[in-house]
């Protein structure tokens, strides 16, 4: 994106989301789309995060609660399976962790600098319910 001065902008603007013809976007997943440089998908808000969610596949039951309630389209689900978190667009709000129903949770918040392998190795055990 070239840098323009404040007085070089036109009043009103038209931005294209995709390069070239874009038909049937509703059935095309992100990896197959031809995003233009003015689509915010090409930008990142990763620096907003203080904590990041990490995903442990072993406990996930693919309920997709995290997918539906993620405000930033950052839960990647393909073929009814949750496959990971999009760390470019996640703002670290923590909703996915709150709505995760498994025990222990398959998504947990960690400090941004936390090493993923170490976190997965030290994942909490199943909590026994108090009777």
């Amino acid at each position: 994106m070239e840098n323009n001065g404040w007085n070089e902008f036109e009043i009103g603007a038209m931005l294209r989301s995709f390069d070239g013809a874009a038909t049937d976007i509703a059935t095309t997943h992100q990896e197959d789309r031809n995003y233009s440089s003015s689509n915010s998908f090409t930008a990142s808000v990763a620096d907003w995060r203080i904590e990041k969610p990490l995903f442990n596949k072993d406990y996930c039951i693919d309920c997709q609660f995290c997918w539906i309630y993620c405000p930033d389209m950052s839960i990647i689900s393909r073929d009814k399976k949750m496959i990971g978190v999009d760390m470019d667009h996640c703002k670290g709000c923590g909703i996915c962790v709150e709505v995760c129903p498994t025990n222990p949770k398959s998504l947990l918040m960690f400090a941004e600098q936390q090493n993923e392998e170490e976190a997965l190795a030290a994942w909490p055990e199943k909590e026994e319910k108090e009777k």
Partner: peptide, 29 residues
Amino acid sequence: LKEFSTSADRFEGANLLCPGCAHSIIVRE
């Protein structure tokens, strides 16, 4: 919900809504 999760979103991330904003949950639905 599993069937719903095969949808391809037409609303993209890196918008500047606050973390945890319900607006984009509504827009997606």
